[in-house]
Design a protein around this nucleic acid. Structure first.
Lengths: 216, 216
DNA sequence: TCCAGACTGGACAGAAAGTCCAGAGGGGCT
DNA sequence: AGCCCCTCTGGACTTTCTGTCCAGTCTGGA
């Protein structure tokens, strides 16, 4: 299901069984990706969690730190999807008999369902109300990710093709969460929203002002 | 297993099946206790988690808030055992046909194993250490008050007669709590510590710098 | 093709954040 | 008391951010 691979490529034929086996073992919540380290493109993908397909460019950062290093296996490290899902990832550089890197295998495990299950368990018989929705993130930049992420999930609209209204709504939530009381937050938000700092301040001004716009 | 009951008592004969059924359903992690509200003693206990037995006095506080109230079912509320286990408890006042309280049934569910399981689940594949200590206050100025307040309480030294060391310690805690990442926090802290802004920055610098002071 | 609305990048003023220092207490010691 | 050392103070000053503005670019729709 959802497997996409290029059977023409010898590397794919070589590694596909491994990738598929792992994908089967870890159920629907693990994505296995085979990358071409030369072209930085996807060779094959099993259980894709995003809309990537064969030939698409590899996600920025997924391979970034890998090449210069001496070791071949990386992680596990944490990644955050725009929709808020938490992934645990490992990567391995796969070499041909001559020792040259021929592919990079990445396994991305979605930890969200496990965490939800954990929440169910610890809520069982718990008399105290769960935290009111709150921001148990120590790190405010995670909070930003989280808020933007849940908005994306709710609306199904990724950051890249948000409308002005979407941005206004997201900024409203961020404002509510007092995010802008934190130093340096505005530029970070601008970055996360793929928008310039000016735009953020513009939208923010529109939000905060008595909107004279509503009555023409 | 581990059931202790007094078959002589009519109330026990009446309620024992209920108690036993609940004890069986909730496995080894729920303790069911039948109390005598008049003598404040244990009439019967199933799956005892502590060393209480029939005839022992009921645990202090277990019945405290029950009597004066109008309702008959209480909880769930949280209890803490000396060994650190967290219990979720409910209680019910059981009445005879004349409406007089004849027994009190308490069910104590040990939530520890569930919470451990939850921890296992959310640790599965988790690369990062769990959050270093949440501090889920929305309002950062409250957080400042809270940190300073607890220091004062711990040391018994009010803000006015703090020593330099005290101030350093407090600032250390505030720093740890990332308080100074918030705009305008420094002056507020200075005010709360009854000290000038300069002093705050001075002490802060001393804290953050490689303390050359330690090696004379 | 042209227009209108939206975003950008850079410039800039103003506000905080930090740094620095001369001078004012204020204990403790002689 | 008188002195000294340590610490805090208030203010001046530099640096870093914040928030505003605007001319110019991009883009989708009529």
């Amino acid at each position: 299901m959802g497997n996409v691979e290029d059977p023409q490529d010898a590397r794919v034929r070589l590694w596909a069984p491994v990738a598929q086996a792992v994908a089967l073992l870890l159920g629907p919540y693990a994505e296995v990706v085979l990358h071409d380290p030369d072209t930085d493109r996807v060779l094959g993908i099993w259980n894709p969690m995003t809309s990537r397909g064969v030939g698409d460019p590899s996600l920025l950062g997924e391979l970034d730190d890998l090449e210069p290093s001496a070791q071949d296996v990386f992680g596990p490290y944490e990644k955050l999807l725009v929709d808020g899902r938490r992934l645990t990832s490992v990567s391995a550089v796969l070499r041909d008999p001559q020792g040259r890197p021929s592919a990079v295998l990445c396994i991305n495990l979605d930890r969200t369902p496990l965490e939800q299950a954990a929440a169910v368990l610890s809520a069982f018989g718990a008399p105290t109300v769960q935290r009111p929705e709150p921001l148990f993130e120590q790190d405010w930049s995670e909070r930003i990710q989280h808020i933007i992420g849940s908005y994306v999930r709710e609306t199904g609209r990724p950051v890249e093709r948000m409308t002005r209204q979407d941005r206004l709504a997201v900024l409203g939530r961020l404002e509510e969460a007092r995010v802008f009381a934190v130093r340096r937050a505005a530029p970070v938000v601008a970055g996360a929203l793929r928008v310039s700092r000016s735009t953020v301040y513009g939208l923010l001004a529109e939000l905060r002002s008595p909107n004279a716009k509503d009555r023409p």
